[in-house]
Amino acid sequence: MVNESGPAESAPQLAAHLAPALALLRAVAAEGHLTRAAESLGVPQPTVSRTLARLADEIGTPVIARQGRGVHLTRAGQLLAAAAADALRTLEAGCREVVEEIAPERGQVVIGFQHTMGATLVPSLVRGFRADHPQVRFGLLQGPRDEMVAGLRDGRIDLCLISPPPDSPELEWAALREEPLLAVLYRDHPLAHRSGLGLAELAGEDFVVTRHGYGLRQIFTDLTDRAGFEPHIGFESEEVDTVRGLVAAGLGVALLPPAVPEAIPGTVEIPLDPPAHRTVCLTWVAHRTLPPAVRAFRDFASRRRT
């Protein structure tokens, strides 16, 4: 619904008015509680109960069952909720497009990004965009590269900042920056005085790396394959700051983009010879219609190489 001051409902709430039974069923599945499900969709709790009761009458079997103070879906309810998920995501996307078409400057952009991009790149892009679009809202999600791409595909995320770029015909991307990758060594390492290092010179070292599913791990594996050796993994971590800390403690070496604003105490960062880099890109689903605010941010970021 729209009032005189602009859009008053979220896309899920608008979709709930258009497809109430299935939208409510999905909300109950997510919340496990009738009152919380009603609140999430902006409808009264008795409406949820009556709608689900009518749905049960229509199909001839209950779709929810009591469980303590909450509820859970029956097998029939689970099947209906699963079948409705894709249709409702499509409907919500269309509702969101309508809402933002009416008032594009009140839209929302949900960006997913890898942890290493949250310190400087994301704030810089959001600040630059909001200088001309002050009312656009942002949702920010960070995590491993594979998790962010999965969120992009299933519609939870509008745009992703990832590296390396995707290799899939269903995803499009624009390069935003090239970042050097450096050998990060503890200060007293025998090679810490060098001005450049061949990656193969580190073949006998213990490496501190990010876990599988993270972009830096994929790049690291590709680089060591090209250098002709299988690295020994000493430690795996989900956080680059932890990787740097383990290197500073003398527990291994790492390949990372430059620290911001400078190398952390106890470490040195040495360029690779030949140089290595990672391409940071903005990614979106190729054939999905993007809402106006999302399109505007995509175009802004794509033009602004940093």
Rank of each mutant, 00 (worst) to 15 (best):
222 D>H: 07
201 E>I: 14
231 P>A: 07
250 G>I: 07
240 V>M: 06
306 T>I: 10
118 G>Y: 15
44 P>Y: 11
110 V>Y: 01
100 E>T: 00
24 L>E: 05
296 A>Q: 05
183 A>Q: 08
138 F>A: 08
46 P>Q: 15
16 A>V: 10
196 G>H: 10
73 L>H: 06
183 A>S: 03
28 V>Y: 11
207 F>D: 10
90 T>R: 15
40 S>A: 05
47 T>C: 02
252 G>E: 04
150 A>H: 03
44 P>L: 08
244 R>M: 11
215 G>S: 00
301 A>R: 01
129 F>H: 10
85 A>W: 07
196 G>F: 05
237 S>Y: 07
9 E>P: 03
118 G>E: 06
40 S>V: 01
179 E>P: 11
71 V>W: 13
144 P>A: 15
72 H>K: 13
234 G>N: 09
88 L>C: 09
54 R>Y: 04
40 S>H: 00
158 D>V: 01
196 G>A: 15
19 A>M: 13
82 A>W: 09
20 P>W: 01
155 G>R: 02
220 F>P: 04
108 Q>F: 01
114 Q>K: 08
238 E>H: 14
23 A>D: 02
286 A>E: 05
88 L>F: 04
228 G>L: 07
276 A>W: 10
203 A>C: 09
43 V>T: 10
202 L>I: 13
84 A>N: 06
218 Q>D: 08
70 G>R: 06
1 M>P: 13
237 S>M: 06
75 R>D: 14
161 L>N: 07
94 G>N: 12
33 H>M: 12
235 F>M: 04
176 L>Q: 08
189 H>M: 00
38 A>M: 02
197 L>V: 12
50 R>W: 14
121 L>G: 04
147 E>Y: 08
208 V>H: 12
207 F>P: 09
102 I>Y: 02
6 G>W: 01
13 Q>C: 02
226 R>D: 10
73 L>W: 07
115 H>A: 12
86 D>S: 14
259 A>S: 14
293 A>N: 04
53 A>K: 03
9 E>A: 13
254 A>Y: 07
297 F>Y: 03
220 F>G: 10
278 R>T: 05
81 A>R: 15
39 E>M: 05
15 A>R: 05
53 A>S: 05
156 R>Q: 14
91 L>C: 00
120 T>K: 10
163 S>Q: 08
242 T>P: 05
153 R>D: 08
236 E>A: 04
259 A>L: 03
172 E>N: 09
278 R>C: 01
190 P>R: 00
55 L>H: 03
39 E>T: 05
282 L>D: 05
194 R>Q: 11
171 L>Q: 02
87 A>W: 10
293 A>D: 00
135 Q>H: 14
96 R>F: 00
198 G>Q: 09
64 I>Y: 09
45 Q>V: 15
103 A>G: 03
98 V>T: 06
22 L>N: 08
44 P>V: 12
50 R>I: 08
220 F>Q: 12
140 L>G: 05
122 V>H: 11
136 V>Y: 03
251 L>M: 10
210 T>P: 00
124 S>P: 06
131 A>K: 13
277 H>D: 03
66 R>K: 13
64 I>G: 01
169 P>A: 15
27 A>T: 08
234 G>K: 09
184 V>Q: 13
284 W>S: 02
176 L>R: 01
154 D>L: 06
83 A>M: 12
290 L>A: 01
262 E>D: 00
4 E>G: 07
216 L>G: 09
220 F>V: 07
306 T>S: 04
209 V>F: 06
261 P>L: 05
235 F>Y: 07
